[in-house]
């Protein structure tokens, strides 16, 4: 067989050929195949890159903490990620947006709470907080492009870039805001009451 002019043909016989679509349809229908030949036409190739890829990036978050309530407001969020060549920039941005939201949700909101009898108290989305659109900041995104040499496309992963960057960026921003109160650590999620209590315990002037 040979591939010529967009068709699959019998070598040396220019009269015998069909398009790949025709061949695929015949293989799929399977009712006109030589005896013993299974229907279907697929092939699997596996590519083992010679090394890992190393996407990297930097996320910066600016927050304001209301000393009277412990409520946190996002002022700015900037993320610069390097996932190599961007084949579809819109999908890359979407991945980063979703990842940042998920990561900041871990830092600020999400918590599974059980009572002393093992009863789940946060069993519905009326109790278990996942941020709505208005509870997350605007994201300023940018990219550097450092193509990897370990695959022919120069691409690196981006799926986890948002979550990996945002949880510590958000948590560290909040802890930085609380530094003047002498607070150095609070377990996530950084719920307002915890921040308020920590500010009060360390420093009466929060009131």
């Amino acid at each position: 067989m040979e591939y010529r002019n967009g068709k699959i043909g019998v070598k040396g016989d220019p009269s015998k050929s069909m398009t790949t679509a025709e061949a695929g349809f015949m293989a799929f229908m399977g009712d006109n195949l030589p005896p013993g030949l299974e229907p279907g036409m697929d092939a699997t190739r596996r590519f083992e890159p010679p090394n890992f890829v190393f996407p990297f990036g930097t996320h910066v978050c600016v927050v304001e903490v209301d000393a009277k309530t412990g409520q946190v407001e996002f002022v700015k969020y900037l993320a610069v990620d390097d996932c190599g060549r961007l084949l579809n920039p819109m999908i890359v941005e979407g991945q980063v947006h979703g990842g940042i939201a998920q990561g900041l949700s871990q830092a600020m909101f999400e918590e599974v709470v059980y009572d002393g009898d093992g009863q789940l108290l946060t069993g519905t989305l009326m109790d278990y907080a996942i941020p709505h659109a208005e509870q997350v900041p605007h994201y300023d995104l940018d990219h550097t492009v450092t193509a990897t040499t370990v695959n022919p496309l120069g691409i690196k992963g981006v799926g986890e870039a948002g979550t990996i960057g945002s949880t510590p960026a958000v948590a560290n921003a909040v802890m930085d805001a609380l530094a003047p109160f002498g607070v150095v650590h609070i377990d996530m999620p950084l719920k307002p009451e915890k921040l308020w209590t920590a500010m009060h315990a360390k420093n009466g002037r929060a009131r």
Binding site: L121, T122, D127, A129, K191, E193, T197
Partner: peptide
């Protein structure tokens, strides 16, 4: 008081 906020808060 509930899972989000204590009575005192």
């Amino acid at each position: 008081s509930d899972t989000f906020a204590s009575g005192a808060y």
